[in-house]
Design a protein around this nucleic acid. Structure first.
Lengths: 111, 111
DNA sequence: ACAATTAGTAACTATTCAGTTACAAATATA
DNA sequence: TATATTTGTAACTGAATAGTTACTAATTGT
């Protein structure tokens, strides 16, 4: 379980996306995170390790506990990647929408 | 090479992201796509099959050739997922920026 | 008709991945 | 001090992944 480690690979797993969702607005220790899933605690621990290694989750040690929280900054990379295509697809969809509206209008006029 | 097939898993692979990039603005047949990579043509064919199965690439048959193009609509899912956290990270980063500015100001005043 | 081009797929391999259980280390509590 | 809690990690398993080569099918060009 070692090799490529980037944000895109990290968010490919649905469990990890769910962990990000849970940790997005509040800090939580590892056991509490694990309670939300059917998989074992070590499995969740590994997921959090991966998320931490690519910066998606930050960890604050407090005694024997480790409080985890989603790190907003690292999500920018994903947003920016998707967003670069946004202008492009928006243009296409706007054209489609316009087309559908025209067709709708024509149908109304026929009546 | 079969099972989960969703947009997030599809874009996890760097080769597939590069294929999307290449096919974002122009249509291209499979061999032409393959020329951009060091891997074999069948390997590229499989990547495109995966991209097609989750809607990220559309294929138009024309004789023996198959013209491939990135499909903007399916990328929205990724954009929306990342964007839901945007307000959150923006808030955090603005706070950080403000903090740095304050520190900078203080340093200026000390001189 | 024959040769060349374009592409899909089968069969195989090596690596990575997500999960498990078992154990050890550190900290907190009785 | 003894015990319970929180966590990380090692060792293992089975499935998925990304790649390969070899082959076939369909279409195009000579």
């Amino acid at each position: 379980m070692e090799a490529r480690r980037d944000v895109f690979q990290a968010i490919a797993d649905p469990t990890r996306r769910e962990i990000i969702n849970i940790l997005a607005h509040r800090s939580m220790n590892l056991n509490s995170v694990a309670e939300n899933f059917d998989i074992s605690r070590p499995a969740v621990s590994k997921h959090i390790k991966i998320l931490n290694e690519c910066g998606l989750v930050v960890i604050h040690k407090k005694g024997r506990e480790r409080y985890c929280q989603a790190n907003p900054a690292s999500l920018i990379e994903v947003w920016e990647w998707a967003n670069q295509y946004r202008a492009f697809w928006k243009e296409k969809l706007d054209a489609l929408e316009l087309l559908l509206k025209e067709e709708y209008k024509e149908n109304i006029e026929k009546k």
